[in-house]
């Protein structure tokens, strides 16, 4: 999937490889084709995605979601609404959950991105689960989703997983939510009750309404 304007590296050795001409992959409305675009409307950006550094020259309109899916072939993050309303595109940016459909890639130069494909590597090796039938290892939350049958069509699942991993980290860091008692002490971890999990995952819609099992799966992996 590497286009002529894309270089991958496993460390900081990845070099800028700006080639302003020639169409790139994924010439959809999100701004893939660079051929006819004025120079000012494209930029070079370096992102570290799931531990691998990528330097790409992209149309400034390229949002992170399209870059992941079309330039890096990481198709776990899904395009649902493309307007920040459904959460299917959720990934972790510098460890925090975000809607990748609303982030121009050029504004993320130097950032670290974790997609659902990179979640297993976030878990400590002793917590990492073996994959189904000898497949790739799983993050404990992915295993819990399987065991709890926390999805039907699965389209929202990568976003649910990344969002829940981010939400758990936020609660551990003491971030309150709309349903946290305002009198709860600042800075202390917030216990994730079912009500808290539902509120904190409200930015992830599930068209199949698998919500009850999603909440149970998240409960299974709480620290």
């Amino acid at each position: 999937m590497d286009g002529p304007h894309h270089e991958t590296g496993t460390g900081d050795r990845a070099r800028e490889s700006a080639r302003p001409t020639g169409p790139g992959p994924g010439a959809s409305g999100g701004g893939g084709a660079l051929g006819t675009l004025p120079d000012a409307c494209r930029s070079t950006t370096t992102l570290r995605v799931n531990g691998v550094s990528h330097t790409l020259t992209v149309d400034n309109r390229r949002v992170l979601l399209d870059l992941l899916r079309e330039d890096l072939d990481l198709v776990g993050a899904k395009k649902g609404c493309d307007h920040g309303q459904c959460g299917a595109c959720t990934v972790l940016l510098d460890g925090r959950r975000v809607n990748s459909c609303l982030l121009p890639a050029v504004a993320l130069d130097g950032c670290e991105v974790t997609t659902v494909e990179g979640l297993p590597a976030l878990a400590p090796p002793e917590d990492r689960e073996d994959g189904e039938n000898g497949g790739d290892p799983l993050h404990p939350l992915q295993r819990a989703f399987l065991e709890r049958d926390a999805f039907q069509c699965g389209y929202c699942t990568p976003g649910q997983l990344c969002s829940a991993v981010g939400a758990i980290a936020e609660a551990v860091a003491g971030h309150p939510s709309h349903v946290t008692d305002p009198a709860a002490p600042s800075g202390e971890p917030v216990p994730l009750t079912r009500e808290e999990i539902r509120e904190r995952l409200s930015g992830n819609l599930c068209r199949c309404a698998a919500y009850p099992h999603i909440v149970e799966a998240v409960e299974d992996v709480l620290p």
Partner: peptide
């Protein structure tokens, strides 16, 4: 902490808006 302790309405209003993903950005 200073917002939560001294201006709770501001913290509550922020948490009543958008989603976790949007508030992070």
């Amino acid at each position: 902490p200073a917002v939560r302790d001294r201006y709770p309405a501001l913290s509550e209003a922020l948490l009543a808006g958008a989603s976790g993903q949007l508030r992070n950005v």
